[in-house]
Design a binder for these strands. Sequence first.
DNA 1: ACGTGGGGTTGATCTGCGTCAATGCGGCGC
DNA 2: GCGCCGCATTGACGCAGATCAACCCCACGT
Lengths: 246, 246
Amino acid sequence: MTAQPVLKAIDIPQLKTVCSSCSLRELCLPMGLSENEIEQLDQLVYTRRRVRRGENIYRAGDPFASLYAIRSGFFKSNVILEDGRDQVTGFHMPGEIMGLDGISADRHACNATALEDSEVCVIPFARLEETSHQVRSLQRQFHKVMSREIVRDQGVMMLLGSMRAEERLAAFLLNLSQRFVARGYSPAEFHLRMTREEIGSYLGLKLETVSRIFSKFQEEGLVSVQQKHIRILHVDGLRALLGRGQ
Amino acid sequence: MTAQPVLKAIDIPQLKTVCSSCSLRELCLPMGLSENEIEQLDQLVYTRRRVRRGENIYRAGDPFASLYAIRSGFFKSNVILEDGRDQVTGFHMPGEIMGLDGISADRHACNATALEDSEVCVIPFARLEETSHQVRSLQRQFHKVMSREIVRDQGVMMLLGSMRAEERLAAFLLNLSQRFVARGYSPAEFHLRMTREEIGSYLGLKLETVSRIFSKFQEEGLVSVQQKHIRILHVDGLRALLGRGQ
DNA sequence: ACGTGGGGTTGATCTGCGTCAATGCGGCGC
DNA sequence: GCGCCGCATTGACGCAGATCAACCCCACGT
């Protein structure tokens, strides 16, 4: 098992954040809030943390106190199983909220590991509940964020429960592409921040299978793959792979 | 595709409900609330609906208006895929809340189908948000309910992503057993409300595989299976099957 | 420039589960 | 009481993806 450095709060510079001037406000918690209301959010989301590649924002079992909105960078959620394997349960990009799993038992249920140097906004949960008690639209938005997480997870369950390997990888690429687009990046060309093994863990496949299918997609002219650099050449071809669920 | 009768609101008798006298209040939304606070819940959860086996409380695409707490009976969440297959995403028993997936897009994302004649309490969501805006502990409890759903889904993702067929079925039986215990039923002996095909769909297996593994478990003396009647004979044996995830 | 190591690719083989097919069983309607 | 139908069981066979193993490539440190 590789060393898993713990985040040292002391080492991390505390930076001033403001949602009202954040370029991600249309994706993140402020979505749909008025200027006024966003300013109330600014009152509670007042710190930002840098996290370096390989570090965890929180780990399974840690007491739960805050949610984290990704400001820049890329994360995986994962659990270390008894046998030492690292089971990946999700990938997260800027504008997404991590830590929702911790609310139920006041402890985090998984780790949140940075896949590249990143920055997160710290959202103290008690204060979020307090503020959303006052700001109705924030309450509503927060509920939507949680519900979206539930829907997303159920989508993954369906993927794992009913798709074959090729379909899973196609769905994965299309999903990443969509999320990049929503953030103003190219839908067709991006860098994978995770290894083949992490993709495989997330998709319920072995790394060799992931690699083989990338090669197959490449042969078929659907994508161009060079290590972690991906270019989607034929979106509709990938989409066509879904639909017909064996 | 089998006929899927739609719930006719008119046909369903509207019964008076009260959380304060409900035997499930320690599992359901009222958990952790004071007598006073539960009485406020009573104000909003005022109707109950009977649903007969095979009927849906809601279907994917239906506009979202209410959550549903199961008062008695048994449900599955499911999605009908384009090719007509019925993909099961969850099983639900008394005290559990259904419909959380609908919040994110104001439309339900799946069907909720009764696997036996059942009763649910209707929780109008707008009023729940309103009341939880006033009753702090209700807000907190509701957030916990949503978070628990997220954690549960991630558990299923891990099951689907990393376990072999036997492990999945063992985990499934142990999970059912636990949930029955929490409701005061026997941990060891219960009736499955769902078919082998529905179990298989949920666990990402084919019905024949489910059946074979039931037989294998029986040969090994772990459980006794007679059609839908299950008796767990050797809990630790089932538990031992987990742990060592290939 | 060179060596090292972690990730990635590719091939050969194995196997768990899916697929197809036949048979059994039990509950329900007539 | 009888026959039907949906569900469950069991067997034979095939294949997708896992496993094992060799090799490659590139980034990085010295």
